[in-house]
Computed example of a mutant assay.
Amino acid sequence: MKALALAVLATSLVACASTPTVKTDFDPSASFASYKTYTWALKPEASSPLVQQRIIDGINARLQAKGLREAPNGDIALAAHIATGQKQTLDTFYSGTGMGGWGWRGGGWGGGMAMGSATTTVHTYDVGTLVVDMFDAKTKQAVWRGTASGTVPSSPDKVNAAVEAGLDKLFVGFPPGKTAAR
């Protein structure tokens, strides 16, 4: 299960109820119109080979839809990384008000305190981040970076949907200059 979460994380950019958090940055002096080909310098490593392949295939499909094609010694070198980690949230519920209010107390009128109770529940969940870096193959300079982070879903169907949604959001503004998602 942890392996699936790690693999998913890379693209776990989207969970059922949440949308991935996506950030992109680019070198404004890079000439994206001159890039026609790309090559993988470093493919992401995921604990699940199926999720890993879906991420690679998803990135390839989106770049090809933007007019780039994969080739040895491409104009752009791609490097992708996946990171996962756990986060926790605390939910506390109170019963009783903790305040007794004003009223008759044995020998007279007055205020008082009453006991209330609190129950805290800890929720632990996995968060995944996919980082995609692009380098100009000739100059070796970074030209674009995109990150997508989100809660890692627990089921394979939701993982696949999260990968697709995360990649869609990550590449919606690529190449820069066309409504980049910053």
Rank of each mutant, 00 (worst) to 15 (best):
M1W: 07
A3K: 10
A3S: 10
L4A: 08
L9R: 11
T11H: 02
L13H: 08
L13D: 07
V14K: 08
A15Y: 15
C16N: 13
A17L: 06
T19G: 12
K23A: 13
D25T: 13
D25F: 01
F26T: 01
S29Y: 04
S29G: 06
S31A: 10
S31P: 01
A33H: 05
A33T: 14
S34E: 12
Y35H: 05
A41V: 10
P44F: 02
E45H: 11
A46V: 14
Q52P: 04
Q52W: 02
Q53W: 01
I55W: 05
I56M: 07
R62G: 02
A65D: 15
A65W: 06
E70D: 01
A71C: 03
P72R: 03
P72D: 15
I76D: 03
A77D: 14
A80K: 04
I82Q: 04
A83D: 13
T92D: 06
T92R: 05
S95N: 09
G96L: 09
R105G: 12
G107F: 14
G107K: 08
W109Q: 12
G112N: 06
G112Q: 08
G116L: 09
V127C: 00
T129W: 03
D136H: 11
A137E: 10
K140A: 10
R145C: 00
T151R: 08
V152W: 01
S154T: 13
S154W: 11
S155R: 11
K158I: 02
A161T: 12
E164T: 14
G173L: 05
G173K: 07
P175R: 02
P176H: 06
P176T: 07
G177S: 10
K178E: 07
T179F: 05
A180N: 14
A181H: 08
